[in-house]
Write a protein that binds this DNA or RNA. Structure first.
Lengths: 231, 231
DNA sequence: CCTACTTTGTGCCTCCTTTCACAAGGGCGT
DNA sequence: ACGCCCTTGTGAAAGGAGGCACAAAGTAGG
């Protein structure tokens, strides 16, 4: 039998809200950097590209952190959102597949600055193993379990070719990792309790193509009627 | 074989369905590669990682392409989904920002194989301009409008640092591009009629961190008691 | 040809998400 | 101190998405 929780009603922050909190956080950090002490829901909503009512409702799930007539204290809200997202804790990340994408991820500055520490890079290619990438020495994939254990990895990132992804995922799960970020173009199969999020570059392009096709009868750019004067 | 009568269905495919069609398409192509001629909704749903009722409903928006008692013809369904997504046409892509990520994108095989042609790579850094990446010579960002016009670019990909993204986006839009895929961690402002899709690596990690925090009995939940007492 | 079986396509219900609209709350000027 | 004005927080309504369950439609077998 599964855990006696038919409905994880705990503290119900809607999934859609969780997905937007990082966006708010980033907008707030930009405001903070520019010295803005407080911000209204309207202003923050504009900065984050959402509707202000939605923003207020989202923030209301965290608590009442605003002041009526004034707005939200930027620094305080940054703290509250960070805490809610778990960014006050340190998360340790391992990246498997040090190809073009893996290297890009390893060098991506946005991780380190937000509570994420890249602790291990792994690859199956012996030509890559041992090389230094982003200040880390690439380890062989065979040492995955060891690396997860030693570095206390809590999030696994898969940037391998599609064919290798499920195998790597299984090993992550076997080693106790319960959160996986997958860049490989396959659907990963995981046991209950393991979270997988997928980032798929070509799917996004296909969605854009769909809408582009609808906009004009299809092909290439639209008519170009005012190009001459526009430029 | 020639498509008999591709029933032009009512145009109103839900966004959530559009986002799943590429997943179905990929699963179907894998089935096709392994020689499977037909597939039931149950089988395809498993391969795509969704509920079979949802899959049938999704496909029903395209038309009635299944055969009751049998399932779906794999090749025919591939054709129908491809056509619906606009993948039977050629889409031309320009990538701006040839850093780690831009290079990864340029070399990503998944694009070329699905009707997307990378036609131009651009960067502001003169140390990068002129170098060969993925078989293309990197152009200077100043030639963006020219490149868009000459290559008939219909989709612009932004892989620049955050600070440069809005400027590049404006120039894309000014040049007539109406579909943008943004990898920079900023909210882009565009006029109506322009589609922007965002891929944000660190946001996905933050969402994982949120759920991970919850799984492990959280950690330091200030002032929050699991209020079982009726209020 | 008729019956039994399989699988699709979809009506209906529920849940989640978004948006509207406004009362409640708090600061600020007089 | 008081009332005006601004902004939050939130009910309620509307819209979209997900999933069950079943009739319709087609195949296979006798």
């Amino acid at each position: 039998m599964t855990p006696p929780t038919p409905r994880p009603r705990e503290r119900g922050i809607p999934e859609a809200t969780v997905a937007r909190l990082p966006v708010y956080l980033r907008a707030l950090q930009a405001l903070n950097a520019s010295g803005t002490p407080t911000i209204s829901s309207e202003g923050l909503a504009t900065a984050a590209g959402v509707n202000s009512a939605k923003l207020r409702k989202d923030l209301s799930y965290l608590g009442s952190y605003g002041t009526r007539g004034v707005g939200y204290d930027v620094e305080y809200l940054i703290y509250q959102i960070s805490r809610e997202l778990g960014l006050t804790k340190d998360w340790t990340v391992a990246i498997v597949g040090i190809g073009n994408l893996g290297r890009a991820l390893a060098n991506y500055g946005g991780f380190g600055t937000r509570g994420f520490r890249i602790a291990a890079l792994l690859d199956a290619d012996t030509a890559v193993v041992g090389r230094e990438v982003a200040g880390l020495s690439v380890r062989h994939i065979d040492t995955l379990e060891e690396a997860v254990k030693m570095e206390k990895v809590s999030i696994g990132v898969i940037a391998t070719p599609a064919a290798a992804a499920q195998g790597v995922c299984d090993r992550f799960v076997g080693a106790g990792v319960t959160s996986v970020l997958n860049f490989a173009p396959v659907v990963l199969n995981v046991p209950p309790g393991v979270d997988v999020r997928k980032v798929d570059l070509s799917i996004e392009l296909q969605i854009l193509a769909f809408h582009e096709q609808r906009k004009n009868g299809g092909h290439g750019r639209p008519g170009w009627i005012e190009a001459a004067e526009g430029l």
